[in-house]
């Protein structure tokens, strides 16, 4: 019974999107999609053409992918660690914590397009080498955007504890550190993943958009903009597809990590 249910949900979870995707690509390649969207093969080139360009330029694309992924990952790491630290501070000082978190999460509401040029001006003194200071600016943008999601979610994970668990800790005469490592931290792990589900795709977007404004010209996002402006739509699409793949792969890795780590956590308790 349980087995058949699993199979059925597997079919609907994976089969349906797969079928939809295949139908989309088929209608795209046959030109049906162009008729539906009332566009031409110039603005929306055929998938095979896009794949050909990706194959021809694999070296150049990988160079740009490296730059973008580096920014996204470093920014994500810094932002998540900072966000978690902020959540800890907010937990230690609960009276002022929620107010502080509101301000941090307000950063999330600032559009990246507004943030990126400001940070590029801020980081002009970081290095005399344009590549380095542009990197710093881009990482900073991703850091700020992923910090907000982590701090808000981690704060919930650190404070919304199972009923009486805190009292239990007190009866054990546990210190604050013990309470943190035995109770609060394990309780916050699922919330960390909730935050990452938001900030992983966010970090990719943050990296791509901040490349638009960076002084040093590199990255998948910059290539999309360059090619659209000189009317090279097929090449632009090759980079758009690349950007999608980056996002999907990073999200898939996160999902995998989540299932493994959460399972390990469940086994322990």
């Amino acid at each position: 019974m349980l087995h058949s249910k699993k199979v059925r949900s597997g079919v609907t979870n994976i089969g349906c999107p797969l079928l939809f995707g295949a139908a989309l690509v088929a209608s795209w390649q046959t030109g049906l999609l162009h008729k539906i969207l009332k566009t031409d093969e110039y603005i929306l080139p055929y998938p095979m053409r896009i794949i050909d360009i990706m194959k021809e330029n694999s070296d150049k694309i990988m160079l740009n992918v490296n730059a973008s992924v580096k920014v996204a990952l470093i920014g994500l790491l810094l932002g998540s660690v900072l966000g978690y630290l902020i959540a800890i501070i907010a937990t230690v000082f609960p009276k002022y914590g929620s107010g502080g978190l509101t301000i941090v999460s307000a950063f999330n509401a600032i559009p990246i397009v507004a943030l990126a040029p400001v940070f590029i001006n801020w980081t002009k003194d970081v290095s005399d080498i344009a590549e380095e200071r542009s990197m710093a600016a881009k990482i900073l943008v991703v850091t700020v955007t992923s910090m907000a999601a982590m701090s808000v979610n981690a704060y919930r994970g650190l404070t919304e504890l199972p009923p009486f668990s805190e009292d239990l800790m007190k009866t054990y005469a546990a210190g604050r550190l013990t309470e943190f490592f035995k109770l609060r931290f394990p309780n916050s792990v699922p919330y960390i993943f909730t935050a990452l589900r938001v900030s992983v795709p966010g970090s990719v977007i943050g990296a791509l958009v901040s490349e638009y404004f960076a002084e040093y010209i590199i990255g998948v996002g910059r290539q999309i903009r360059e090619n659209i402006l000189i009317a090279q739509y097929a090449t632009a699409w090759a980079y758009i597809v690349t950007a999608c793949i980056i996002g999907i792969v990073m999200y898939a890795i996160l999902m995998l990590a989540e299932s493994i780590i959460l399972k390990a956590c469940l086994h322990r308790t």
Binding site: I86, G97, G99, G100, I103
Partner: peptide
């Protein structure tokens, strides 16, 4: 003050 400290920390 606490909020500001966090911000500067960030």
């Amino acid at each position: 003050i606490a909020a500001m400290t966090m911000l500067t920390g960030a």
